[in-house]
Amino acid sequence: MTKIKWNHAAALAFFAASQVAHAGTPSVGSREYKVLLNPVAFDSSPVDTANRFLTDLQASLAANGFDSTVKKTFSADNDRTVLYYDSPGTCAVKQAGYSMRERDDSSGRNIELKFGSANETTSANTDVSGSSSKASSKLEDDITPPSNQTYSHSTNEPLSNSKNINHLSDINDLFPTTHVFDSISSQSLAPVSGLSIHELTFDGPTSDLGQEDADFTMTVWYANGSSTPALAEISFEVDVNDNGVFTDKVTSRSQLIFNTIQGMTNWVQSPSSTKTAWVYKYQPTFCSQ
């Protein structure tokens, strides 16, 4: 068998070239598993309901042979207003594979542009760079029932209190490398389905997956000032290890938790979707006015 010998200089040159070739192309940093729950259950004291769900999940995991458990309990995390933006009548943002979300809380406004694709390479190579020095980007593997997988490339950045979002041109102002809307930049942007969402999130619980932890979040939405919950979601996030991979053990244990949650039919909303899909369905005529 012929062996290829590398001298030190050649090896360094090859490594440097390969690094340049992959510079700017992100890799998946985390997986997030998401399941919608029946919001009616959260009508009274959502944090207490979240912890009742947790107790049921712990029992269900034990019954399904999970050799660990979910530790800690849910407590209040975020309290904020959420808006999604798109063009009324055309939904050009959604049609191009993007979503645009604003969050506003006591610390100020934040804007996120996200591109999603079932193809990891397509999503990774779609540039969503922000305009702020405080912009933060990530590539995430989103998994929803029953086993739908979307690679989401997103950037979050602060949004000035004086910034109005009125037209598709605002997307290019905030995310300058996004040119897909240039030819229709004068089209208006408005909150999708006319929705202003009051979002409460609760976090705290974790589960040891055998090298990485699963970090759980419960999200509850209230629509347009209502005191009755309109949507609830349980999610858990798992980061890659120090080598940038999900080990087989972490993957199988994550899948067991995900499958167990889906099997909790007394809690799970059926049919399931995503929070973003729910926003667009809230007023079905928004995209076809």
Rank of each mutant, 00 (worst) to 15 (best):
H22T: 13
A223N: 13
T69S: 15
F53E: 03
L139C: 07
N172I: 00
Y151C: 03
L37W: 00
Q262F: 09
S252P: 07
P39D: 07
Y282F: 15
F202P: 03
I261P: 01
G210V: 08
M218N: 05
S123E: 01
S99N: 15
A230K: 12
R253L: 11
Y282R: 13
G24W: 08
S44N: 13
F53I: 06
L256K: 13
A232K: 00
A76M: 07
F14M: 13
N125R: 15
N241G: 07
S147G: 11
A10M: 10
L54P: 00
D77P: 03
S87I: 02
R103W: 11
L189S: 01
A17F: 10
P46N: 08
I261T: 06
N243P: 00
K71G: 00
T126G: 03
W267Y: 13
S132E: 11
P145K: 02
Q283R: 11
T228I: 14
P39I: 04
K94I: 06
S136L: 08
W6G: 04
T144F: 07
S235E: 04
L37C: 07
Y282A: 15
I197V: 15
G194T: 11
Q58M: 03
G29F: 04
P229W: 02
I197R: 01
A76D: 10
D48W: 01
T73G: 04
H167N: 13
S75I: 05
L159A: 08
A135S: 15
Y280H: 08
A62F: 08
G65S: 12
L200T: 04
S188R: 10
S193V: 05
A11N: 06
S169G: 12
V47M: 14
A63R: 12
Q149D: 14
I261W: 01
S147R: 13
V93F: 06
D86S: 08
S132I: 06
A190H: 04
L174V: 09
S123G: 07
T155F: 02
P146C: 04
S226L: 03
G89H: 09
S235A: 14
S186W: 11
T219N: 06
V279C: 08
Q19F: 11
N243F: 04
F115A: 10
S162V: 11
D86Q: 07
N241C: 04
V268L: 09
A21N: 12
L54C: 04
S273F: 04
D86G: 05
P271Q: 11
L113Y: 02
N172S: 14
S270A: 14
D105C: 14
G65W: 12
S207R: 09
M100N: 02
S132D: 15
A17S: 15
S99W: 05
S68K: 12
R109P: 00
P158K: 05
T276R: 06
D142M: 10
I257E: 06
N119W: 03
G29M: 12
A135Y: 02
F236E: 03
D213R: 13
D242Y: 07
Y222T: 03
G116M: 05
F74A: 06
T25Q: 10
K34Q: 14
T177V: 04
T81L: 14
S162N: 14
S152Y: 02
R80D: 03
G89T: 10
L200K: 15
Q269Y: 09
Q262N: 09
G244C: 09
D142E: 15
V82W: 00
T73R: 12
S131Q: 11
F42A: 03
K94C: 01
